[in-house]
Amino acid sequence: MVLFFQLLIDGLASGAIYASLALALVLIFRATRIVNFGQGEMATLSAYCAWQLCEWGLPVALSFLIVGAASFLLGVFVFRAVIKPVSKAPVETIVVITLGLFVFFQSLCLWLWRADQRAFPAMFPSGGWDILGVRVTASALCILLVLLCLAATMGAIFRFTRLGLAMRASAYSSEKSLLVGIRVERMLMLGWGFAATIGFIAAVLVGPRLFLSPTMMLPILLYALASATLGGWDSPLGALVGGLIVGVAESLGATFLPFIGADLRVVIPIAVTLVILLVRPVGLFGSSTVVKV
């Protein structure tokens, strides 16, 4: 029983990581109806930049602030340079382009910082507690809390603010949005900018756990895609819950399902995705599916 709870807690901790990237994916989807396969890699680049600034002697908080803003600009730039020109293209084109972003940013990190792993400055205290034999770390708890706040804020922005409403409107229909006076292009740009920043926050949260390497986000991407599908592509809260469920399912499945084991744990998110897509394509909390006919 202790093992079960320990696995549950561990699952939640890794689920938080998946949820953080899923949040960024959901934000872009919500704002532009695009799934950005390059999201994780863009976040990695941001994380490297922050690490580099710290290495150069800047205080951690300041460098995070600078890079957070820079990430926003990166998102805006990517949108303007490569997404906007193809915004009317069919989905295959966009998928290929975001895969291109994925390959490009991964290689860029490799070019600039080589393949060695580097320790990322930790933001949260390193201690933890033993509760009835179950180890709960402070950092996992902090990550969860930050994510919860992030998801709640995002949800509230989309629901209650003029900006959020306008972003949703732009994603729903650019033409109708233009007719109510929304500067649609600006909204899409903001969406990419915010998503890049959230991606950076995700990288900051998970950086200390994963170490920094050009491919650090690659394994996460699959889990994040599964989380977003599970939670519903247009629900920030769904991304969070989906991430946690995927994390727990992975942790429990890898231990208690003998035919899966540690080697095949990657099958779990795929199975989750497939089942959700076939059974309830809008996900747990979503209101629209990834693909409309």
Partner: peptide, 10 residues
């Protein structure tokens, strides 16, 4: 516009 111009999921 034609076709109402409302946002269906709002």
């Amino acid at each position: 516009p034609q076709g109402r111009g409302t946002f269906g999921d709002f």
